[in-house]
Simulated assay, not measured.
Amino acid sequence: MSTAAPPAMLPAPSALTRASGWYRDALRLWRRAPLKLVFLSLACLVAEALLQLLPAVGTVLSKAVVPMLAVGVWIGLDHLARGEALRFSCLVAGWRHPRWPSLWALAAAIGLVVFAVQVASAMLVYGPVVWDAVVLGHLMQYPALQTRRLEFVLLLPGLVPATLLTLAPPLFLFRGEGVLASLAGSLQRVAAHAAAFALALLPQLALFAVALSTPWAMPLLLLLMPLGTLLAYAAWRDLAGPSQAG
């Protein structure tokens, strides 16, 4: 019978330690391909803008297509973290996944849930006219809505559901979970580490607010998009464990 004492349990890191570690790891990964990450973000923004030019359905369609491009960036980041090159072709990697229809359903669900929260928040402030202006793409017909305030009301609330569902893509991609299990698993994991995710979200909220405050600061959005995905990837690697993260 062994008399060896069990190994001492290390205390769990504090929420602040965990969140700051995610930022550290995200920035380390960013340094491996800084320009490519910005260009990938720019490509997503351009794709969204082009899709929204389609009458009536363009805005909603963009929320179902662009998140699939973002899933491809997850795949590219995983390759980058493993020492491989980050390729622009990662944008379409989601459609090359063996379970791409389900993956697309997951990406679209995330995009549409975030968009629904944004529209609902704007409708609480501006009323039902938001449906025609934002969802159906007729914003130019409503000069009173073409303000910085609408951008704040639309974009900032979306960061909350985006954070809650942020771990759904890696659960699908790297753990083989189904669509519903990935969504539920993300909610569970984020809730279990709510303080850390909240602390990680606060600087992003502040930077988004700065980016939306003046046209001169809008280029910050090109930095915020990869930062959000890099933070999510760093959180995944931390919470999933090195052996199970990818």
Rank of each mutant, 00 (worst) to 15 (best):
M1F: 13
M1P: 12
S2Q: 06
T3P: 00
P6Y: 08
P6I: 13
P6R: 09
P7T: 06
P7N: 00
A12K: 08
S14V: 02
S14H: 08
S14N: 05
A15G: 12
L16W: 13
R18Y: 09
R18D: 04
S20C: 01
R24H: 11
R24C: 13
R24S: 15
L27P: 02
L27W: 11
R28M: 11
L29Y: 09
W30Q: 05
R31M: 03
R31T: 10
R32F: 00
R32T: 01
A33W: 01
K36G: 11
K36Y: 00
L37E: 00
L40H: 02
S41K: 06
L42N: 00
A43D: 10
C44T: 14
V46R: 07
A47T: 13
L51N: 15
L53E: 15
A56C: 00
V57W: 12
V60M: 13
A64E: 12
A64F: 10
V65F: 07
P67G: 13
A70Y: 12
D78N: 03
H79Y: 01
A81I: 05
A85H: 13
S89I: 03
L91Y: 04
V92L: 15
A93N: 05
A93G: 10
A93E: 12
W95Q: 11
H97Y: 15
A105W: 10
A109S: 15
F115T: 10
A116G: 15
A120Y: 09
S121P: 02
M123T: 02
M123K: 10
G127Q: 01
V129H: 09
V135L: 10
H138S: 02
M140Y: 10
A144E: 02
Q146H: 05
Q146L: 08
T147I: 00
T147A: 00
L150C: 03
V153E: 03
L155P: 06
P157T: 12
L159A: 03
P161V: 00
A162K: 09
T163R: 04
T163L: 11
L165S: 06
T166S: 14
T166L: 08
A168I: 06
P170A: 13
L171A: 04
F172N: 04
F172M: 07
L173A: 08
F174P: 00
F174T: 08
E177L: 10
L180S: 05
A181C: 04
A184L: 11
G185L: 13
S186F: 14
S186I: 09
V190S: 08
A191M: 15
A196Q: 11
A200F: 03
L201P: 08
L202K: 11
L202T: 08
P203W: 06
V210R: 05
V210A: 04
A211W: 12
A211G: 11
A211P: 15
T214R: 14
W216P: 02
A217W: 01
A217F: 07
P219T: 14
G228V: 03
G228T: 02
L230P: 12
L230S: 05
Y233R: 10
A234T: 07
A235I: 09
W236P: 04
D238R: 06
Q244W: 05
Q244A: 15
A245V: 03
A245K: 06
